[in-house]
Design a binder for these strands. Structure first.
Length: 509
RNA sequence: GUUCCCGUAGACGAAUUGGUUAAGUCGUUGCUCUUUCACAGCAAAGGUUGCGGGUUCGAUCCCCGUCGGGAAUACCA
């Protein structure tokens, strides 16, 4: 492969960018970077009725958050612009006309209403209407109406579309990198609309014209495009152009396994489906993003890379550079990949574990600030190191360690009832004194003194440590008690211990 | 309905000119370490490669059929 490969990611700005779109972008990006090629962002906004303000900015912000910054695009520059299809409107018609002239396309005058009525009627009889060789001579188009008539309609300014005229009976062969050879019979395919009544091209026309004009060499897109690829290949032939290499990606499936992951599944299964949060017009149309939910974009990318591809080695953790190095378009999987939240959680955890402390501090800080606390970096660094290895997501730092900032809200009453012995109260008062006299208040010294206390009083670790832990944090889970006590500080520890004893007594009474 | 795609343990998936007892990871269970949770380490369970034929000395791999899942079937992308 030479170094002039050019790939594009071509989303339509109809709302937030779905996670599947990010994967498509990722694979395009990886292949482009691997061979020193170009990664282009093209906005496919040919459907003016579906345009959503802000979607374009969302797409770019999402790509950048994921580290998939395009090399060409509306705000990235490039010699092949404009990169927004609405701004290229004037380019498309000539190619549709060219295909009309060569007899591979035709004018169609049927209105949308007429067509949907026919469809509805046939559907009632359990049949499907296909605009193709079998039906087009019964429709109103330039193949059934006389030339004069056609000209008259055209001159009158009446709305019309241009449709692709599919060959009657021919095999269209697609050599797809992922699927291998796929054959479609033109007989089964419909005469797709190329140019809409509003003068805009459909996806089918716009995508092949732009891919050609932008010198795209590889088209990596979702599997849902496979059926229409036959139309695209035919158009390249009719226009006398070379078709790009195709690779159709497997679908990303719902966690439940059936059906492709949809934007509604996030709410349904309780996890984000979008990279960034999106505020739509309605609650129903608003979604939380991976970024806001505390996911590491690097972990997300690593996870996504493995959804439909694998390097064939045993390495699982990949940086972007390593992905670029290892990526091989020939190793993309054919079968749909299920979106496995556990796996994503594992990746996120791995990334959190390997994040340097200073970096972690910067990430945890905003979470605490939002809760109204702004501890100094030295404290935060200790705090982070305590929780780093028992946390899967960023917000866990707060949910697991909130008691370093606020009073304990939930006590593990069940364990208290089991462990707290009323008759031991005096011994624990002694413990309070012991703790009070620890100077300096360090984990090491605390451990030494508390261990001595346990020995002196002939108690066991199991009888003492859980009590301390619960009094101070409400739970038996968490980091080493002594480290915890040190970071909490003498004042808080003493206060919580003595208050804890009273609470425990009450619980047992 | 039609066309196309897919089908290896609960999940992701390796085995790429068909070649020994079908990798590895996640998850599950157990053990070690720990006051606890987690991390880490070790170990185990889990599969007639959807099913049935065929080709072959030999099929996860090739062919046919069948079942299951999915996608497409718009003047949406």
């Amino acid at each position: 492969m030479d170094n002039t490969i050019r790939l594009r990611f071509a989303p339509s700005p109809t709302g937030a960018l779905h996670i599947g779109g990010i994967r498509t972008a990722l694979y395009n990006y990886l292949l482009a970077k691997k061979y020193g090629g170009t990664f282009i962002l093209r906005i496919e906004d040919t459907d003016q009725t579906r345009y959503v303000p802000g979607a374009e900015e969302y797409i770019m912000e999402a790509l950048e958050w994921c580290g998939l910054t395009p090399t060409e695009g509306t705000k990235y520059g490039g010699e092949h612009g404009p990169y927004r299809q609405s701004e290229r409107k004037h380019l498309y018609k000539q190619y549709a006309d060219q295909m009309v002239a060569s007899g591979n396309a035709y004018y169609a005058f049927d209105t949308q209403e007429e067509l949907s009525e026919i469809r509805k009627a046939l559907e009632a009889q359990k049949e499907t209407f296909i605009y193709n060789a079998q039906t087009r001579d019964q429709m109103r188009n330039s193949l059934t109406v006389s030339e004069d008539e056609v000209q008259k309609i055209l001159d009158s300014g009446a709305a019309y579309t241009i449709r692709l005229k599919m060959p009657d009976d021919e095999d269209v062969i697609i050599d797809d990198i992922v699927r291998g050879r796929v054959v479609f019979k033109t007989k089964e395919l419909d005469d797709k609309v190329l140019l809409k009544a509003d003068g805009m091209p459909t996806y089918h026309l716009a995508n092949i014209v732009d891919d050609h004009l932008m010198e795209i060499t590889h088209v990596i897109r979702g599997e849902e495009w496979l059926p229409s690829t036959a139309h695209h290949v035919l158009m390249y032939r009719f226009l006398g152009w070379d078709a790009p290499t195709y690779a159709h990606l497997p679908l990303i499936l719902k966690p439940s396994g059936n059906g492709k992951l949809s934007k509604r599944d996030g709410r349904k299964f309780g996890f984000p489906v979008f990279p960034l949060s999106w505020k739509g017009a309605t609650e129903e149309d608003s979604f939380e993003g991976f970024r806001e939910a505390g996911y590491d974009s690097k972990a997300l990318i690593n996870f996504l890379a493995f959804l439909g591809w694998n390097p064939g080695t045993e390495q699982e953790i990949f940086s972007m550079d390593e992905l670029i190095e290892a990526f091989d378009i020939n190793r993309i999987t054919k079968s749909g990949a299920r979106f496995d939240l556990d796996k994503l959680k594992w990746f996120n955890q791995q990334y959190l574990h390997q994040t340097p402390l200073e970096e972690l501090v910067e990430k945890v800080k905003p979470i605490l600030v939002e809760k109204g606390y702004s501890p100094n970096d030295a404290f935060l660094e200790k705090f982070c190191s305590l929780y780093k290895e028992r946390v899967s997501f960023l917000p866990d730092f707060w949910t697991q360690g909130y008691y370093f900032f606020e009073e304990v809200t939930v006590f593990d009453e069940k364990t208290i009832r089991k462990k707290w012995k009323l008759e031991n109260r005096t011994k624990f008062e002694t413990l309070l004194e012991v703790v009070q006299n620890v100077v300096p208040f360090s984990a090491a010294l605390l451990e030494e003194k508390i261990k001595a206390f346990i020995a002196d009083e002939e108690l066991s670790f199991g009888a003492v440590l859980p009590i301390i832990r619960i009094a101070v944090s409400g739970t038996t889970k968490g980091p080493s008690v002594f480290d915890m006590l040190e970071l909490l500080g003498k004042e808080k520890v003493v206060e919580r211990l003595s208050r804890g004893y009273d609470l425990f007594d009450q619980l047992k009474a």
